[in-house]
Structures are given as C-alpha cells and as structure tokens.
C-alpha cells in the first residue's frame, strides 16, 4: 500500500518533468542576448544587428570562445574539462541558457528587449 502511493508519487514527478521539459523547449526567444558572469552582465548583444565575429572571454586563465554568426550565438570552443557549453550549440530557447559552470559563464536571451540601445 505504502509502496503504491510512493510509485504514484514517482510517476507524477516523472510526468511533471516531461511536461516541464516540453514547456522549456517551447518557450519563445527574443533578439537580445546577454553574456553574464556571476550575475554581472559582461556583454549585451542585439542579434539582429550584430556583425559576425568570434571573441574570447577569459576567466582565471580559462577561455571560452564565443561565436556570433547569422544572428545566432554559441560557444565555439572552451578549455574547460566538460565542454557542456560547446555541446549546447546555438542558443535557441529563452529557457535554456548556455552555461559554462567551471568558468561561471552564462549566455541567455534577455526577457524584455528594452535595452536594445545599450547593445554592443
């Protein structure tokens, strides 16, 4: 009896996870991207007007190479051990930021695009 209740709870958690994942994948994206470290904004980039380029962001001797191309942004190379940020690929959902945990780097879409003018 106790086990049945717990199995149902586990099933509900699993179902909520799937629903949440679908919600995250479908969340809309904006045109403004921010690159942050520990809640400090390093760059604000408007992808509509940004020129194609690559640049390095350094942190305690580690480097993330960020690429902007055709109005998209990604981490092209990184010298951290897990390379999760590189594997994330192009930034595509406002709910899934590109994250480099070792280098404390976060690249995400900005919720409200009122800072467009500050870009670059």
């Amino acid at each position: 009896m106790k086990n049945k209740v717990l199995i149902i709870i586990a099933a509900v958690i699993f179902a909520l996870g799937i629903v949440g994942s679908i919600f995250v994948i479908n969340s809309p994206k904006t045109d403004t991207v921010v690159i942050k470290r520990d809640d400090k904004i390093l760059y604000t980039i408007d992808l509509r007007t940004a020129t194609d380029r690559t640049f390095d962001i350094e942190f305690r001797g580690s480097v993330n190479t960020v690429e902007i191309k055709d109005g998209r942004i990604r981490v092209k190379e990184a010298d951290c051990p897990d390379k999760v940020c590189v594997k994330t690929g192009w930034l595509s959902s406002s709910a899934i930021p590109i994250v480099c945990l070792p280098n404390h780097l976060v690249i995400e879409f900005k919720e409200n695009a009122e800072v467009d003018a500050v870009a670059k």
Binding site: A10, I13, F14, L16, G17, I18, V19, G20, S21, F23, V24, K36, D38, D39, S93, A95, I96, P97, V99, L101, H104, V106, E108
Partner: peptide
C-alpha cells in the same frame, strides 16, 4: 547549488530535464 553559485535563476530551466533523466 548551481543557482546559488552562478546567481542565475535561469538555471532552473534545466530542472525538468534533470528530473526526467534522474527518474
């Protein structure tokens, strides 16, 4: 831990995926 260390609440967006994978 990730939210506290990175000071980025957006990381919570990973949570649903982690739950599915964790199950």
């Amino acid at each position: 831990a990730a939210v506290i260390i990175l000071q980025t609440p957006a990381i919570i967006a990973y949570y649903p995926f982690l739950i599915v994978a964790g199950c």
